[in-house]
């Protein structure tokens, strides 16, 4: 159930004291990401895929497109499903078993960014009204967890969607896969009253709170999620939004 590791109070104080001086354990500035790399299309069995690395954190996203039944309230629209797997391969703190609250939260935060920005034109994905539509499954696989899974997973999901060439599935009639926007999640964490982007694992272990803001190209917000046991002031929320907009523009460049 616990995602975070127990951390010594010496280390906790060290990180908090550095934050007070606008410094971080790995020498980054507060508004600096670790090295980000994005590779696409390495999974041939998926219709779209992307491997995102942020520092040592690695998330692989794969998209599969299949036929399925529509929801009764949207009989001629495709269905988007986002699922996240936090398997024990990625961290000594991850355990076997059904999805826990952390993987559910991760999947739902990524899902909201893509769904609410209307990145996929689901209305184009009907087949037979009320009977059959295209289902778009985005599966997020954490491979190595060293902090900030949300941003890595969100970037991987958006990249994997844009990686879809004309899907090779029987009965596909559109010329291409209908994507339009590029939602990017940026997580800002608060430590000792200071805001910083891209928390490392140690920083996540000591942070008071985090706020994930997903923005699209014009800087408007399509999803937000506060997490962690602390609070945020209104000024902190506004500052986090400024950070999120600037950083999302940077991350979006990796999409090409």
């Amino acid at each position: 159930m616990k995602m975070y590791e127990i951390i010594s109070s010496v280390k906790r104080d060290y990180i908090a004291d550095l934050a007070r001086q606008n410094k971080r354990t790995d020498g980054r500035t507060l508004d600096q990401y670790r090295e980000v790399s994005v590779e696409t299309g390495q999974i041939k069995s998926a219709h779209g895929s992307a491997l995102v690395k942020i520092g040592n954190t690695q998330v692989l996203a794969g998209v599969k497109i299949q036929r399925g039944e529509p929801f009764p309230d949207t009989p001629n629209s495709g269905v988007l499903m986002v699922n996240a797997e936090l398997r024990p391969i990625a961290s000594p703190t991850f355990e076997l078993g059904p999805p826990d609250e952390n993987s559910i939260e991760l999947a739902r935060v990524v899902d909201r960014g893509i769904r609410e920005s209307e990145t996929i034109d689901l209305d184009k994905l009907g087949i037979t009204p009320g009977e059959e539509v295209w289902m778009v499954y985005i599966d997020l696989h954490a491979l190595d967890y060293d902090g900030n899974l949300i941003d890595a997973a969100s970037l991987a999901a958006t990249t994997a969607l844009w990686n879809i060439k004309k899907p090779q599935v029987e009965g596909w009639t559109l010329d291409e896969f209908p994507v339009s926007k590029k939602p990017i999640a940026v997580t800002v964490s608060k430590i000792n009253g200071k805001l910083m982007v891209d928390p490392s694992l140690d920083e996540e272990n000591v942070m008071d709170a985090r706020l994930t803001i997903t923005t699209v190209e014009d800087g408007s917000i399509c999803a937000m999620q506060k997490g962690g046991a602390g609070y945020l002031t209104v000024e902190e929320i506004k500052a986090a939004y400024e950070l999120a907009r600037a950083k999302a523009a940077e991350l979006r460049e990796h999409l090409g």
């Binding site: 769904r115 609410e116 408007s220 917000i221 999803a223 999620q225 506060k226 609070y231 945020l232 002031t233």
Partner: peptide, 16 residues
């Protein structure tokens, strides 16, 4: 009393 935020979620579209 402190006027700080402890839950914030959002889905949809907002400009600044």
């Amino acid at each position: 009393r402190k006027k700080v935020i402890t839950l914030l979620q959002m889905d949809g579209h907002f400009t600044q």
